[in-house]
Simulated assay, not measured.
Amino acid sequence: MNFTNLYFLRLLWQIPIALLILSIFLFSISGYAISFNSRRTKDVAYVSPTSPDFSPERHLLDIYTPRSTSAKGRPVVVFMHGGAWNSGSKNLYFIIGRRLAKQGVVAVVINYRLAPSVEVPAMADDCARAVIWTAQHIADYGGDPNRIFVMGHSAGGGLAALVANDDQLFTKFGMTKNPIKGAILDDPGGLDMFDYLTKMQYPGDESYLGAFGKKPDVWRTVSALYYLRADSPPVLMYAGENTYPGIASSTRKYDKRLQELGIKHEFTVLPGKKHIPMVTQLFWKNNVIYRDLLKFVGAESS
């Protein structure tokens, strides 16, 4: 592939990112309005600063809590951002945290380390560590540690699916049981990266090797599809009708495997939606994902 083609591919990739940032800017005014219904605790370290791998930027999370009080602990949703495993920040998704808190959920929006600094196995470790911190501390913020759900879009959706099903991510850090009670997957990427990278069907697929490495056994290790079992936690999964072909294919495959194992789940294809609008729709309160999510986690509206 010549320089001109590479430049064009990079430019195409920047277009949806630019649209995402523009959408966030336009809806930031809405974010100020809904902030009165929630509290934000910002930049909490979920890895000890004395840990040798501690990242002062990436090992941080934000907590969004409803301002109203509740006699019992509220359901908790840990949100993992997208960005092709090499970009993204919790700070871009504050509106999602605010929206969830306004609707009676304690939201935890996390950062995790990115490529090229680390590869996906380390990112999965980070997401598990953030969930462990949540289980240990969320009661202090009004959340119920026995009702922790994970949610993610794009790369974050693949990581959410992985931590929901790979129990070893928790036992390696001393937790005897995976605390996740369910997963909400919004146009998730990487559900079967073993198959995807083995085939290399699409232009630019080689770029993912920076995050996943070049070893097929590792690709399989970080693919949530291969961890599904009959007692896996329930799943809400959404895909855009016009999303990327790789995501369309892997979500159908994931849905089929969920059906085969009898795992409680719902899979919805949203008409006309592309990949980026699948997350920007969450800036609005009244969308199908929130409506389903609130029932799924058992939230009581604030």
Rank of each mutant, 00 (worst) to 15 (best):
residue 136 Q to G: 07
residue 41 T to H: 00
residue 87 S to P: 01
residue 113 R to C: 12
residue 78 V to K: 00
residue 142 G to R: 13
residue 114 L to G: 08
residue 136 Q to S: 10
residue 66 P to D: 06
residue 101 A to I: 12
residue 90 K to I: 13
residue 43 D to G: 07
residue 139 A to D: 14
residue 139 A to H: 08
residue 140 D to M: 09
residue 91 N to V: 07
residue 110 I to Q: 02
residue 78 V to N: 04
residue 122 A to P: 03
residue 67 R to W: 11
residue 65 T to C: 09
residue 106 V to N: 00
residue 126 D to C: 11
residue 66 P to W: 02
residue 88 G to Q: 02
residue 79 F to Y: 15
residue 133 W to G: 14
residue 121 P to D: 15
residue 83 G to K: 08
residue 83 G to D: 09
residue 67 R to A: 07
residue 117 S to T: 13
residue 92 L to G: 04
residue 62 D to H: 02
residue 70 S to G: 10
residue 57 E to Y: 15
residue 53 D to P: 00
residue 86 N to F: 14
residue 115 A to K: 01
residue 78 V to Y: 05
residue 115 A to I: 08
residue 71 A to L: 14
residue 126 D to Y: 07
residue 94 F to V: 06
residue 40 R to C: 01
residue 75 P to T: 15
residue 121 P to S: 15
residue 135 A to G: 14
residue 108 V to T: 08
residue 128 A to G: 12
residue 142 G to A: 15
residue 113 R to I: 11
residue 117 S to K: 11
residue 129 R to N: 01
residue 77 V to N: 07
residue 44 V to P: 01
residue 50 T to Y: 00
residue 101 A to Q: 08
residue 134 T to A: 09
residue 119 E to M: 11
residue 128 A to Q: 07
residue 104 G to C: 07
residue 75 P to I: 15
residue 97 G to V: 06
residue 129 R to C: 04
residue 57 E to M: 12
residue 138 I to M: 07
residue 116 P to F: 04
residue 135 A to V: 13
residue 126 D to N: 04
residue 45 A to C: 02
residue 48 S to N: 13
residue 118 V to K: 02
residue 140 D to R: 09
residue 104 G to V: 08
residue 119 E to Y: 04
residue 83 G to Y: 15
residue 135 A to N: 13
residue 128 A to I: 12
residue 135 A to M: 07
residue 142 G to E: 14
residue 43 D to S: 09
residue 47 V to N: 01
residue 59 H to F: 00
residue 102 K to C: 03
residue 135 A to C: 12
